[in-house]
């Protein structure tokens, strides 16, 4: 599904390397988690994969289903099936949530040569999916993320994911700012999307999200590289002993 090889990335504006040779493969149907301390490059990885400006890839590759992601515009990556759930979803005053989502769904369908979704079908689907995530009609009508609580913003991300039905989902610290109930709601939304044909990359600081979204593989990232890969037990090890222990082990 997602294949990252020897990825080196630096900031465009300054001569500062952030990713220093990341190798990572996420298979269809699997949930991979990346854990790591602040500044280890986790969020940078998610931005580089989704095509945000400001980063320069100096070496390596990233492919989605054999397609070179790094050559594509952000919207082309989305149409190819990549989805990033933002750590800090952006507020867009003046753009209705519903308008935004319908525009996005139909833009992706158009890019893939599919027919646009009718308003009636779209409404039916979004209402059903919003209900599962306890998103009320008012939230759908309001401008994108404007006035949403932290939990509402994250649920809105998952709603977008559900509507866009991507092949590869990256969740960037989706648990940040969530209380236990909100985290469970978000995790249920993600679990409902787990599927044979879909890959997940869950980026998080803490083990607690992984109690709800059970990963198949856990990677530890530090200073721009993946320093250890293991099963779910690796997340528990981090929880109990911290990152310093793993870094020391690597050294």
């Amino acid at each position: 599904m997602l294949e990252i090889k020897n990825l080196h990335v630096k900031l465009e504006e300054e001569d500062k390397a952030i990713l220093k040779g990341v190798d990572l493969t996420v298979e269809a149907g699997k949930v991979h988690a990346i854990m790591g301390p602040n500044g280890s490059g986790k969020s940078t990885l998610s931005y580089v994969l989704s095509g945000r400006d400001g980063y320069e890839v100096t070496d390596g590759s990233a492919e989605l289903l054999g397609e070179d992601l790094l050559e594509l515009e952000p919207e082309e990556r989305a149409a190819a099936g990549l989805f990033l759930a933002f750590q800090y979803p952006i507020e867009i005053p003046g753009v209705g949530n519903m308008t935004f989502l319908r525009t996005a769904v139909n833009a992706q369908r158009k890019a893939r040569g599919q027919e646009e979704m009718s308003s009636a079908d779209f409404l039916k689907e979004i209402r059903a999916k919003a209900k599962e995530l306890k998103i009320d009609a008012d939230m759908l009508k309001r401008p994108v993320n404007v006035g949403f609580s932290g939990g509402e913003k994250k649920r809105n991300e998952i709603l977008q994911m559900a509507m866009l039905a991507p092949k590869m989902c990256i969740l960037d610290e989706t648990d940040s700012g969530l209380d236990v109930d909100a985290m469970k709601l978000v995790a249920d939304g993600v679990n409902a999307l787990r599927d044979e044909g879909r890959g997940f990359l869950v980026i998080t600081h803490y083990q607690r999200l992984l109690d709800h979204i059970k990963p198949d593989v856990v990677h530890i990232m530090s200073e721009g590289r993946i320093i250890k890969t293991g099963g779910p037990e690796l997340a528990l090890e981090v929880e109990n002993e911290g990152y310093a222990h793993l870094k020391a082990e690597e050294a």
Binding site: S50, E75, A78, I90, V95, T103, A104, A107, Q108, A111
Partner: peptide
């Protein structure tokens, strides 16, 4: 706003239509 633009594009809306959406949002008030 570039952050907003990226958010829209990351959802699959090409740059042109995304800029249009932002422009219409700008005059909405």
């Amino acid at each position: 706003d570039e952050d907003s633009l990226f958010y829209l594009r990351a959802r699959g809306i090409p740059r042109g239509p995304a800029e249009d959406l932002m422009t219409i949002a700008f005059i909405a008030e």
